[in-house]
Design a protein around this nucleic acid. Structure first.
Lengths: 182, 182
DNA sequence: TTGAAAACTGGCCGATCGGTCAGGAAGCTG
DNA sequence: CAGCTTCCTGACCGATCGGCCAGTTTTCAA
Protein backbone atom coordinates (compact mmCIF):
# COMPACT_ATOMS: atom_id res chain seq x y z
CA UNK A 1 0.00 0.00 0.00
CA UNK A 2 1.25 3.47 -0.91
CA UNK A 3 1.83 5.71 2.11
CA UNK A 4 0.10 8.62 0.36
CA UNK A 5 -1.40 9.03 -3.06
CA UNK A 6 0.10 12.20 -4.58
CA UNK A 7 -3.12 13.29 -6.27
CA UNK A 8 -5.08 12.93 -3.07
CA UNK A 9 -2.59 14.96 -1.04
CA UNK A 10 -2.36 17.68 -3.66
CA UNK A 11 -6.10 18.32 -3.70
CA UNK A 12 -6.37 17.99 0.05
CA UNK A 13 -3.63 20.52 0.58
CA UNK A 14 -5.14 23.03 -1.81
CA UNK A 15 -8.50 22.75 -0.05
CA UNK A 16 -6.87 23.41 3.32
CA UNK A 17 -4.86 26.32 1.91
CA UNK A 18 -7.90 28.03 0.44
CA UNK A 19 -10.06 27.27 3.48
CA UNK A 20 -7.47 28.94 5.71
CA UNK A 21 -7.39 31.99 3.48
CA UNK A 22 -11.17 32.31 3.42
CA UNK A 23 -11.73 31.57 7.12
CA UNK A 24 -9.20 34.25 7.96
CA UNK A 25 -10.73 36.80 5.60
CA UNK A 26 -14.42 36.26 6.32
CA UNK A 27 -14.72 34.10 9.41
CA UNK A 28 -15.56 30.40 9.70
CA UNK A 29 -19.32 30.83 9.81
CA UNK A 30 -19.42 33.16 6.83
CA UNK A 31 -17.55 30.75 4.54
CA UNK A 32 -19.52 27.99 2.84
CA UNK A 33 -18.24 24.68 1.53
CA UNK A 34 -19.07 26.01 -1.93
CA UNK A 35 -16.80 29.00 -1.36
CA UNK A 36 -13.94 26.71 -0.39
CA UNK A 37 -14.56 24.38 -3.32
CA UNK A 38 -14.66 27.22 -5.86
CA UNK A 39 -11.45 28.73 -4.49
CA UNK A 40 -9.72 25.36 -4.55
CA UNK A 41 -10.90 24.66 -8.10
CA UNK A 42 -12.99 21.61 -7.31
CA UNK A 43 -16.59 20.75 -6.49
CA UNK A 44 -18.25 20.93 -3.10
CA UNK A 45 -18.69 17.17 -3.25
CA UNK A 46 -14.93 16.78 -3.55
CA UNK A 47 -14.39 18.79 -0.38
CA UNK A 48 -16.78 16.43 1.40
CA UNK A 49 -15.02 13.46 -0.16
CA UNK A 50 -11.75 14.51 1.50
CA UNK A 51 -13.19 15.83 4.75
CA UNK A 52 -15.95 14.43 6.89
CA UNK A 53 -17.95 17.65 7.13
CA UNK A 54 -17.19 21.32 7.54
CA UNK A 55 -15.81 21.06 11.10
CA UNK A 56 -13.26 18.53 9.81
CA UNK A 57 -12.01 21.16 7.35
CA UNK A 58 -11.60 23.55 10.26
CA UNK A 59 -9.69 20.94 12.22
CA UNK A 60 -7.33 20.39 9.29
CA UNK A 61 -6.74 24.15 9.02
CA UNK A 62 -5.94 24.38 12.71
CA UNK A 63 -3.87 21.21 12.90
CA UNK A 64 -0.35 22.61 12.21
CA UNK A 65 -0.72 25.32 14.85
CA UNK A 66 -2.22 22.84 17.30
CA UNK A 67 0.72 20.50 16.77
CA UNK A 68 3.28 23.29 17.28
CA UNK A 69 1.51 24.41 20.44
CA UNK A 70 1.38 20.89 21.83
CA UNK A 71 5.12 20.63 21.23
CA UNK A 72 5.65 23.88 23.15
CA UNK A 73 3.66 22.57 26.10
CA UNK A 74 5.70 19.39 26.15
CA UNK A 75 8.93 21.38 26.35
CA UNK A 76 7.65 23.84 28.94
CA UNK A 77 6.70 20.96 31.22
CA UNK A 78 10.36 20.04 31.61
CA UNK A 79 11.42 23.53 32.75
CA UNK A 80 11.48 25.31 36.08
CA UNK A 81 8.74 27.86 36.73
CA UNK A 82 10.95 30.86 35.90
CA UNK A 83 12.35 29.15 32.82
CA UNK A 84 8.91 28.12 31.66
CA UNK A 85 7.68 31.71 32.01
CA UNK A 86 10.48 33.11 29.86
CA UNK A 87 9.99 30.24 27.41
CA UNK A 88 6.26 30.97 27.19
CA UNK A 89 6.73 34.68 26.59
CA UNK A 90 9.12 34.13 23.70
CA UNK A 91 7.70 31.09 22.00
CA UNK A 92 4.00 31.72 22.51
CA UNK A 93 4.55 35.08 20.85
CA UNK A 94 6.38 33.43 17.99
CA UNK A 95 3.62 30.89 17.57
CA UNK A 96 0.87 33.52 17.54
CA UNK A 97 2.75 35.60 14.98
CA UNK A 98 3.62 32.75 12.65
CA UNK A 99 0.15 31.22 12.87
CA UNK A 100 -1.66 34.55 13.00
CA UNK A 101 -4.17 33.30 10.45
CA UNK A 102 -5.20 30.54 12.82
CA UNK A 103 -5.57 33.08 15.63
CA UNK A 104 -8.01 34.96 13.46
CA UNK A 105 -10.00 31.85 12.68
CA UNK A 106 -10.29 30.76 16.29
CA UNK A 107 -11.67 34.11 17.43
CA UNK A 108 -14.59 33.69 15.07
CA UNK A 109 -15.43 30.29 16.50
CA UNK A 110 -15.26 31.28 20.18
CA UNK A 111 -19.01 31.83 20.63
CA UNK A 112 -19.68 28.22 19.64
CA UNK A 113 -16.49 26.73 21.01
CA UNK A 114 -18.37 24.24 23.14
CA UNK A 115 -19.88 22.62 20.07
CA UNK A 116 -16.48 22.19 18.38
CA UNK A 117 -14.68 19.30 20.08
CA UNK A 118 -12.06 19.33 17.31
CA UNK A 119 -10.49 22.52 18.65
CA UNK A 120 -10.95 21.93 22.36
CA UNK A 121 -7.40 20.63 22.67
CA UNK A 122 -5.91 23.69 21.03
CA UNK A 123 -7.84 26.01 23.32
CA UNK A 124 -6.91 24.01 26.43
CA UNK A 125 -3.24 24.10 25.44
CA UNK A 126 -3.46 27.86 24.90
CA UNK A 127 -4.83 28.32 28.40
CA UNK A 128 -2.09 26.10 29.82
CA UNK A 129 0.51 28.23 28.07
CA UNK A 130 -1.12 31.34 29.53
CA UNK A 131 -0.72 29.85 32.99
CA UNK A 132 2.98 29.25 32.37
CA UNK A 133 3.28 32.85 31.22
CA UNK A 134 1.85 34.24 34.45
CA UNK A 135 4.83 32.91 36.35
CA UNK A 136 2.94 32.58 39.61
CA UNK A 137 -0.33 31.24 41.00
CA UNK A 138 -1.33 34.67 42.25
CA UNK A 139 -4.82 35.24 40.81
CA UNK A 140 -3.97 38.80 39.83
CA UNK A 141 -0.92 37.73 37.84
CA UNK A 142 -2.94 34.93 36.26
CA UNK A 143 -5.60 37.45 35.23
CA UNK A 144 -2.97 39.81 33.89
CA UNK A 145 -1.44 36.99 31.86
CA UNK A 146 -4.87 36.32 30.37
CA UNK A 147 -5.17 40.00 29.64
CA UNK A 148 -1.78 39.88 27.95
CA UNK A 149 -2.72 36.91 25.81
CA UNK A 150 -5.91 38.66 24.75
CA UNK A 151 -3.84 41.63 23.65
CA UNK A 152 -1.41 39.32 21.90
CA UNK A 153 -4.12 37.53 19.97
CA UNK A 154 -5.82 40.81 19.11
CA UNK A 155 -2.61 42.30 17.79
CA UNK A 156 -2.00 39.27 15.59
CA UNK A 157 -5.52 39.54 14.18
CA UNK A 158 -5.03 42.95 12.63
CA UNK A 159 -1.31 43.16 11.86
CA UNK A 160 -1.81 46.44 9.93
CA UNK A 161 0.82 45.50 7.38
CA UNK A 162 3.49 44.84 9.98
CA UNK A 163 6.18 42.32 9.19
CA UNK A 164 6.49 39.20 11.32
CA UNK A 165 9.50 40.67 13.10
CA UNK A 166 7.85 44.03 13.85
CA UNK A 167 4.79 42.26 15.19
CA UNK A 168 6.87 39.91 17.30
CA UNK A 169 8.83 42.79 18.81
CA UNK A 170 5.70 44.77 19.62
CA UNK A 171 4.06 41.82 21.34
CA UNK A 172 7.13 40.93 23.35
CA UNK A 173 7.51 44.55 24.44
CA UNK A 174 3.90 44.66 25.63
CA UNK A 175 4.19 41.33 27.39
CA UNK A 176 7.24 42.48 29.32
CA UNK A 177 5.36 45.50 30.55
CA UNK A 178 2.45 43.37 31.69
CA UNK A 179 4.13 40.28 33.06
CA UNK A 180 6.14 40.20 36.28
CA UNK A 181 9.09 37.78 36.36
CA UNK A 182 8.44 34.78 38.57
CA UNK B 1 -49.50 63.52 18.48
CA UNK B 2 -48.20 61.08 21.04
CA UNK B 3 -44.43 61.22 21.40
CA UNK B 4 -44.25 57.42 21.41
CA UNK B 5 -46.82 54.70 21.08
CA UNK B 6 -46.44 52.58 24.24
CA UNK B 7 -47.26 49.29 22.54
CA UNK B 8 -44.72 49.91 19.80
CA UNK B 9 -41.93 50.79 22.22
CA UNK B 10 -42.64 47.87 24.50
CA UNK B 11 -42.33 45.29 21.73
CA UNK B 12 -39.36 47.05 20.16
CA UNK B 13 -37.54 47.09 23.47
CA UNK B 14 -38.17 43.42 24.13
CA UNK B 15 -36.85 42.50 20.69
CA UNK B 16 -33.68 44.51 21.30
CA UNK B 17 -33.26 42.99 24.77
CA UNK B 18 -33.55 39.43 23.50
CA UNK B 19 -31.42 40.11 20.43
CA UNK B 20 -28.65 41.43 22.66
CA UNK B 21 -28.84 38.35 24.87
CA UNK B 22 -28.71 35.97 21.90
CA UNK B 23 -26.02 37.85 19.95
CA UNK B 24 -23.85 37.80 23.05
CA UNK B 25 -24.41 34.12 23.70
CA UNK B 26 -24.11 32.74 20.18
CA UNK B 27 -22.72 35.47 17.95
CA UNK B 28 -24.50 37.68 15.43
CA UNK B 29 -24.19 35.33 12.48
CA UNK B 30 -25.41 32.31 14.42
CA UNK B 31 -28.64 33.98 15.54
CA UNK B 32 -31.58 34.01 13.14
CA UNK B 33 -34.50 36.41 13.06
CA UNK B 34 -36.65 33.47 14.05
CA UNK B 35 -34.51 32.93 17.17
CA UNK B 36 -34.96 36.57 18.15
CA UNK B 37 -38.69 36.49 17.45
CA UNK B 38 -39.26 33.33 19.49
CA UNK B 39 -37.27 34.71 22.43
CA UNK B 40 -39.18 37.99 22.28
CA UNK B 41 -42.53 36.22 22.08
CA UNK B 42 -43.56 37.50 18.69
CA UNK B 43 -43.33 36.44 15.05
CA UNK B 44 -40.40 36.88 12.72
CA UNK B 45 -42.58 39.20 10.61
CA UNK B 46 -43.03 41.45 13.64
CA UNK B 47 -39.28 41.80 14.03
CA UNK B 48 -39.10 42.88 10.40
CA UNK B 49 -42.02 45.22 10.95
CA UNK B 50 -40.07 47.09 13.62
CA UNK B 51 -36.61 46.81 12.05
CA UNK B 52 -35.60 47.19 8.44
CA UNK B 53 -33.63 43.95 8.24
CA UNK B 54 -31.29 42.03 10.49
CA UNK B 55 -28.46 44.63 10.41
CA UNK B 56 -30.93 47.22 11.72
CA UNK B 57 -31.55 44.98 14.75
CA UNK B 58 -27.80 44.90 15.31
CA UNK B 59 -27.60 48.67 15.07
CA UNK B 60 -30.36 49.03 17.66
CA UNK B 61 -28.53 46.66 20.00
CA UNK B 62 -25.31 48.64 19.65
CA UNK B 63 -26.92 52.07 19.81
CA UNK B 64 -26.75 52.76 23.59
CA UNK B 65 -23.06 51.89 23.77
CA UNK B 66 -22.37 53.91 20.63
CA UNK B 67 -24.14 56.92 22.13
CA UNK B 68 -22.19 56.65 25.39
CA UNK B 69 -18.92 56.35 23.51
CA UNK B 70 -19.72 59.37 21.34
CA UNK B 71 -20.40 61.35 24.50
CA UNK B 72 -17.01 60.29 25.89
CA UNK B 73 -15.26 61.45 22.73
CA UNK B 74 -17.00 64.80 22.92
CA UNK B 75 -15.77 65.30 26.47
CA UNK B 76 -12.23 64.11 25.77
CA UNK B 77 -11.93 66.63 22.96
CA UNK B 78 -12.15 69.48 25.46
CA UNK B 79 -9.29 68.19 27.61
CA UNK B 80 -5.51 68.54 27.49
CA UNK B 81 -3.55 65.58 26.25
CA UNK B 82 -2.61 64.33 29.71
CA UNK B 83 -6.13 64.87 31.01
CA UNK B 84 -7.62 63.12 28.00
CA UNK B 85 -5.35 60.14 28.55
CA UNK B 86 -6.39 59.72 32.18
CA UNK B 87 -10.00 60.28 31.19
CA UNK B 88 -9.75 57.61 28.49
CA UNK B 89 -8.20 55.04 30.81
CA UNK B 90 -10.92 55.42 33.40
CA UNK B 91 -14.02 55.91 31.31
CA UNK B 92 -13.23 53.66 28.38
CA UNK B 93 -12.72 50.87 30.89
CA UNK B 94 -16.04 51.72 32.52
CA UNK B 95 -17.77 51.72 29.18
CA UNK B 96 -16.32 48.37 28.12
CA UNK B 97 -17.31 46.80 31.45
CA UNK B 98 -20.84 48.18 31.53
CA UNK B 99 -21.46 47.39 27.86
CA UNK B 100 -19.52 44.15 27.88
CA UNK B 101 -22.31 42.44 26.00
CA UNK B 102 -21.84 44.86 23.14
CA UNK B 103 -18.12 44.19 23.15
CA UNK B 104 -18.86 40.53 22.68
CA UNK B 105 -21.22 41.20 19.81
CA UNK B 106 -18.82 43.47 17.97
CA UNK B 107 -16.01 40.90 18.05
CA UNK B 108 -18.20 38.47 16.16
CA UNK B 109 -18.88 41.00 13.43
CA UNK B 110 -15.28 42.13 12.91
CA UNK B 111 -14.56 39.88 9.93
CA UNK B 112 -17.39 41.51 7.97
CA UNK B 113 -17.08 44.96 9.50
CA UNK B 114 -16.68 46.60 6.10
CA UNK B 115 -20.13 45.45 5.04
CA UNK B 116 -21.77 46.86 8.17
CA UNK B 117 -21.96 50.64 7.79
CA UNK B 118 -24.26 50.84 10.82
CA UNK B 119 -21.39 50.13 13.20
CA UNK B 120 -18.61 51.99 11.42
CA UNK B 121 -19.12 55.03 13.65
CA UNK B 122 -18.80 52.98 16.82
CA UNK B 123 -15.57 51.38 15.63
CA UNK B 124 -14.11 54.70 14.51
CA UNK B 125 -14.91 56.24 17.91
CA UNK B 126 -13.28 53.28 19.64
CA UNK B 127 -10.10 53.83 17.67
CA UNK B 128 -10.15 57.53 18.47
CA UNK B 129 -10.47 56.71 22.16
CA UNK B 130 -7.52 54.34 21.83
CA UNK B 131 -5.47 57.21 20.42
CA UNK B 132 -6.35 59.38 23.40
CA UNK B 133 -5.32 56.53 25.67
CA UNK B 134 -1.85 56.28 24.16
CA UNK B 135 -1.05 59.75 25.46
CA UNK B 136 1.52 60.44 22.73
CA UNK B 137 1.95 60.19 18.98
CA UNK B 138 4.90 57.84 19.37
CA UNK B 139 4.04 54.84 17.17
CA UNK B 140 5.20 52.40 19.85
CA UNK B 141 2.91 53.91 22.47
CA UNK B 142 0.07 53.99 19.96
CA UNK B 143 0.64 50.30 19.22
CA UNK B 144 0.79 49.49 22.92
CA UNK B 145 -2.47 51.34 23.49
CA UNK B 146 -4.05 49.22 20.78
CA UNK B 147 -2.60 46.16 22.46
CA UNK B 148 -4.12 47.35 25.74
CA UNK B 149 -7.54 47.88 24.21
CA UNK B 150 -7.43 44.40 22.70
CA UNK B 151 -6.71 43.01 26.14
CA UNK B 152 -9.47 45.11 27.62
CA UNK B 153 -12.05 43.94 25.11
CA UNK B 154 -10.92 40.35 25.50
CA UNK B 155 -11.23 40.48 29.27
CA UNK B 156 -14.74 41.90 29.00
CA UNK B 157 -15.74 39.11 26.64
CA UNK B 158 -15.15 36.33 29.09
CA UNK B 159 -15.68 37.86 32.51
CA UNK B 160 -15.47 34.43 34.22
CA UNK B 161 -18.14 35.37 36.70
CA UNK B 162 -16.38 38.49 37.88
CA UNK B 163 -18.45 41.36 39.15
CA UNK B 164 -18.41 44.68 37.33
CA UNK B 165 -16.15 46.17 39.98
CA UNK B 166 -13.64 43.28 39.94
CA UNK B 167 -13.48 43.43 36.17
CA UNK B 168 -13.04 47.19 36.16
CA UNK B 169 -10.21 46.99 38.68
CA UNK B 170 -8.39 44.27 36.77
CA UNK B 171 -8.60 46.19 33.51
CA UNK B 172 -7.44 49.43 35.03
CA UNK B 173 -4.53 47.64 36.70
CA UNK B 174 -3.44 46.13 33.39
CA UNK B 175 -3.84 49.41 31.55
CA UNK B 176 -1.62 51.21 34.05
CA UNK B 177 1.10 48.64 33.52
CA UNK B 178 0.91 49.04 29.76
CA UNK B 179 0.32 52.74 29.30
CA UNK B 180 2.95 55.40 29.98
CA UNK B 181 1.63 58.77 31.26
CA UNK B 182 1.82 61.50 28.64
C1' DT C 1 -69.55 53.33 19.40
C1' DT C 2 -67.15 53.39 15.38
C1' DG C 3 -63.77 53.64 11.88
C1' DA C 4 -59.21 54.53 10.54
C1' DA C 5 -54.47 53.80 11.80
C1' DA C 6 -51.14 50.96 14.02
C1' DA C 7 -49.49 46.52 15.35
C1' DC C 8 -49.08 42.05 14.26
C1' DT C 9 -49.11 37.42 11.87
C1' DG C 10 -49.24 33.04 8.75
C1' DG C 11 -47.77 31.71 4.69
C1' DC C 12 -45.00 32.03 1.03
C1' DC C 13 -40.73 33.21 -1.78
C1' DG C 14 -35.99 32.47 -3.81
C1' DA C 15 -31.50 31.56 -2.22
C1' DT C 16 -28.27 29.06 0.12
C1' DC C 17 -26.80 26.06 3.60
C1' DG C 18 -24.33 21.28 4.80
C1' DG C 19 -24.62 16.86 3.25
C1' DT C 20 -25.69 12.35 0.30
C1' DC C 21 -25.46 9.31 -3.60
C1' DA C 22 -25.03 6.98 -7.93
C1' DG C 23 -22.10 6.98 -11.39
C1' DG C 24 -18.41 8.92 -14.63
C1' DA C 25 -13.22 9.90 -15.38
C1' DA C 26 -8.56 8.94 -14.39
C1' DG C 27 -4.79 6.23 -12.98
C1' DC C 28 -2.44 2.05 -11.77
C1' DT C 29 -1.64 -3.11 -12.12
C1' DG C 30 -1.96 -7.45 -14.09
C1' DC D 1 -5.80 -4.71 -23.31
C1' DA D 2 -9.02 -5.51 -19.15
C1' DG D 3 -10.30 -4.70 -14.53
C1' DC D 4 -10.00 -2.65 -10.06
C1' DT D 5 -9.32 1.22 -7.09
C1' DT D 6 -9.03 5.96 -6.32
C1' DC D 7 -10.63 10.42 -7.29
C1' DC D 8 -14.04 13.34 -8.54
C1' DT D 9 -18.64 15.35 -9.92
C1' DG D 10 -23.71 16.82 -11.05
C1' DA D 11 -27.90 16.35 -9.33
C1' DC D 12 -30.55 16.27 -5.64
C1' DC D 13 -32.22 16.40 -0.63
C1' DG D 14 -34.37 18.58 3.58
C1' DA D 15 -33.64 22.44 6.40
C1' DT D 16 -33.15 27.08 7.22
C1' DC D 17 -32.01 31.55 6.02
C1' DG D 18 -33.64 36.80 5.41
C1' DG D 19 -37.32 39.02 3.57
C1' DC D 20 -42.10 40.15 1.67
C1' DC D 21 -47.08 40.67 1.47
C1' DA D 22 -52.02 40.28 2.03
C1' DG D 23 -54.89 40.20 5.51
C1' DT D 24 -56.34 39.98 10.56
C1' DT D 25 -56.32 41.77 15.21
C1' DT D 26 -55.63 45.46 18.37
C1' DT D 27 -55.49 50.22 19.70
C1' DC D 28 -57.23 54.61 20.27
C1' DA D 29 -59.06 59.11 19.20
C1' DA D 30 -63.19 61.32 17.58
Amino acid sequence: MAVTTPARERTRLEIVRQAMRLFQAKGYNAVSLQDIASAAGCSKATVLYHFNGKPAVLAAVLEPAAADLAELIKTARTLSRAEAQEFAIQHFTDLAVVHRGVVDVIQDVIPVIDEMPEIAGLVADGMQMTRYMAGSDDPLEQDLAQFAVNGLLGACRRPDGRTDEELRRLCEHALRRLIRPA
